[in-house]
Design a protein around this nucleic acid. Structure first.
Length: 479
RNA sequence: CGAGAUGUAGUGUAACGGUAGCAUCCAUGCUUUGGGAGCAUGUGGUCAGAGUUCAAAUCUCUGCAUCUCGACCA
């Protein structure tokens, strides 16, 4: 991926949303372009966010009985072609290895675009009895999808993700599990990423290639566009039949397994950036920040440096182990340090200078609001913990308010097109056909993001065709 | 892959066919220090190849790359 570099300048959101996004990534030093087109180098600041994602999700997965494993990146081509819809969906974006070891391969190997096929090829040998079920496996991996157009985090040729794959004894259990895992994602986004999402079901045309049903988390970015930020699929017995995943049930009958798969990728970091950041740069929710508090010593003259820095260290120690803190002792002017940490999104800044030491207090500055206040040194731990919690909930509330303000319900085509052009999330009736969905997409560029779980059943008529409809679905332009 | 645009230090920009310059960044030194410091010195560049010309960053051709817009997508 080649492209413009932005150095330290943040392009205002109002000017160009896409450039703003790229400039925030550059300023916070999260990622950079790779010599390979479409790929991205995730730098330490960006990878630290991914490590947080891994930490939190692994904990949640364990609670649900999921075990981590790892499968090869190279998949024999004929495995990929086993499930008809799956091949059709992925064929255009698969990269293939044709030569290795100095010779042409007898059978080409594909670089995994997802791991259903290679996993299920061995799952069939792991499962013999209903007592082996459910099988709950997750892997953290990279995958390759040869996309036409890429953008850091949101869409890259190679990306990191976790993909969970399960086998169950019947369809209801599989469906419930797919829903459960979507719930894990929903909770993760709400509680950690501070991103409010709209959970729901994908329409037929938007569902995963090979799935019976796809559940999704859709989030609204600050430009009003939707981001599909994670998905969970009920695969039915489509793959089980293609890969011969069978077991003996309680009645001693040989039956097919019922499967799910669910994934969350580095795209979620893109969603994090686009949800909270501002014209000063990245804004990290405290629970996703590897550094939650930065202490900047204010040094009026070189002679006072040692004393003030040691005072700053003491404050850092006093915050204890539950708050991650960094003392910035670089040889820079403090003003420059402020800007540096602001663009990196660190939630709280503590300033400590001679006047503060004299008064036995510090200055606390919030990244989300910019609010500055003096805080006495006593009870500083409580004060900081409290501030971090406030920032976490404020970010969520702010994003939720934005989503609510920009979600509208419409009844006719004029209202519909006006709202879509105005970058709203639009709840509208739809006749349920692929043709109507496609014609809406072709005409105005909006797609059905999902049929929200909380969409109530009601009589209505499709905004495009006027045909009868039983519930409203969520339309929006998507990233 | 189709259509259009653009390629000059790390970055951002100048130069009629005639000495490649400015700013920033980086490095060094001094002075500064409660919100992006100042001065001095220094390192570093015409996308690649061919052609036209006394002379090419500039004109022509080819290639490559990037950007914007479409088709694809977690």
């Amino acid at each position: 991926m080649e492209g413009k570099t932005y150095e330290n300048k943040i392009v205002p959101r109002s000017e160009d949303y896409s450039e703003w996004y790229l400039s925030v990534i550059a300023a916070a030093d999260l990622a950079t372009y790779s010599p390979v087109k479409g790929c991205m180098i995730i730098k330490p600041n960006g990878y630290a966010i991914w490590e947080k994602v891994q930490e939190v999700l692994n904990k949640e997965f364990k609670k649900k009985g999921v075990q981590n494993a790892y499968f090869p990146m190279l998949i024999p081509e004929k495995l990929l072609t086993r499930e008809a819809q799956h091949v059709e969906g992925f064929a255009p974006e698969v990269a293939v290895v044709t030569h290795a070891g100095g010779a042409k391969l007898d059978e080409p190997l594909v670089l995994r675009p997802t791991s259903e096929t290679i996993m299920y090829e061995v799952f069939k040998d792991w499962i013999h009895s209903y007592r082996d079920l459910p099988l709950l496996i997750n892997q953290w991996a990279n995958v390759i999808r040869w996309e036409m157009k890429t953008k850091p985090f949101l869409r890259t040729t190679e990306f990191l993700w976790q993909e969970g794959h399960t086998v169950h004894k019947d369809e209801p259990e599989a469906d419930a599990y797919a829903r459960t895992m979507l719930g894990v994602y929903e909770k993760f986004f709400a509680d950690y990423m501070a991103i409010p999402i709209i959970p729901g079901v994908k329409s037929e045309s938007e569902k995963f290639a090979g799935a019976l049903r796809t559940y999704t988390c859709e989030a609204m970015m600050q430009d009003g566009k939707a981001l599909q930020i994670s998905t969970s699929h009920n695969l039915g017995d489509n793959f089980a039949k293609a890969f011969d995943i069978k077991f003996l049930n309680e009645e001693n009958n040989e039956v097919y397994g019922w499967q799910t798969s669910w994934g969350l990728s580095t795209r979620s970091i893109g969603g994090l950036i686009m949800t909270h950041s501002d014209d000063k740069g990245l804004v990290l929710p405290p629970k996703m920040a590897s550094i939650q508090v930065v202490i900047v010593p204010i040094i009026p003259n070189p002679d006072s440096r040692a004393a003030i820095e040691s005072a700053a260290m003491k404050v850092a120690e006093s915050l204890g182990e539950n708050i991650s803190v960094h003392v910035d002792v670089r040889d820079m002017r403090h003003g420059e340090k402020y800007f540096d940490w602001e663009k990196k999104g660190i939630p709280v800044r503590i300033e400590i200078g001679p006047k503060d030491i004299e008064k036995n207090s510090v200055v606390i500055v919030r990244r989300d609001t910019g609010d500055k206040e003096f805080a006495p040194m006593e009870n500083l731990v409580e004060k900081i913990s409290d501030t971090l919690e406030k920032i976490q909930s404020n970010l969520y509330d702010r994003a939720l308010a934005m989503q609510n303000e920009n979600t509208v319900t419409v009844t006719n085509w004029d209202e519909f097109t006006a709202a879509i052009e105005d970058r709203k999330f639009v709840m509208a009736h739809w006749d349920g056909t692929d043709e109507t969905e496609k014609s809406i997409k072709d005409e105005i560029g909006a797609t059905i993001r999902c049929i929200p779980f909380d969409s109530v059943e009601e009589e209505g008529s499709c905004v495009k065709t006027g045909k009868p409809s039983t519930r409203r679905v969520l339309f929006a332009k998507a990233h």
